[in-house]
Design a binder for these strands. Sequence first.
DNA 1: CGGAATACATCATATCACGAGGTATCAAGA
DNA 2: TCTTGATACCTCGTGATATGATGTATTCCG
Lengths: 105, 105
Amino acid sequence: MDAQLRRGVLDVCVLAAIKNEDSYGYKIIKDLKPILELSESTLYTILKRLEEGKMLIVRSVEFEGRLRKYYHITDLGHKRIEDFKSEWKEMMGIYSFIVEENRYE
Amino acid sequence: MDAQLRRGVLDVCVLAAIKNEDSYGYKIIKDLKPILELSESTLYTILKRLEEGKMLIVRSVEFEGRLRKYYHITDLGHKRIEDFKSEWKEMMGIYSFIVEENRYE
DNA sequence: CGGAATACATCATATCACGAGGTATCAAGA
DNA sequence: TCTTGATACCTCGTGATATGATGTATTCCG
């Protein structure tokens, strides 16, 4: 998978991974594995950015002696997913242009 | 349109713009305008990269006193477009995951 | 005991799009 | 003639980004 193409869906993928129920870093990676593999450093960068953008909020929980940070999607986060859907329609237009058959006459 | 999403298609769009017939910078921008707007600085960066990646070759032509550099797609360039098609299939899978309805039971 | 799994974090690096700015020619109109 | 806008190219600096490498600490299991 091309790196640039990948970048376009990373943030939204992470949001989608927590949209049904709160989750934490390590679990997000495991859940996304069949869809899209991402490293820890990549994920934590994304989570940080999403938090700064107020698309999710964080809650630290002590779990079996280890720290766990649960991420909860906000309304802004849901909106981001909705916006993505419209952007995808635009992308489909671009896709059609790219794969359009050659015109030899 | 989200900047990251855009990035994923920029290179391939430029290749698509020359896949049917050779073209030059200024014309590529005009042709792509209805599909995707891009500035000159962006385009020339992309053309340079595509040339370095041997996806197109350049031919300088004197035209009405002005210089014109015609870009011609190579086999590697066509392959890049083909690869993009497969990548798009992967992307559709990711898209489905993202927009999948919430499961409340 | 020891290593794998769990769980977090930071830093340096490389890649990239883009605005700002630059050069030069030609056509059209004031 | 002078100026403006279109044509046509190019470069540099900046900010954003993903990722590998690396580090810390705990728990589980053989």
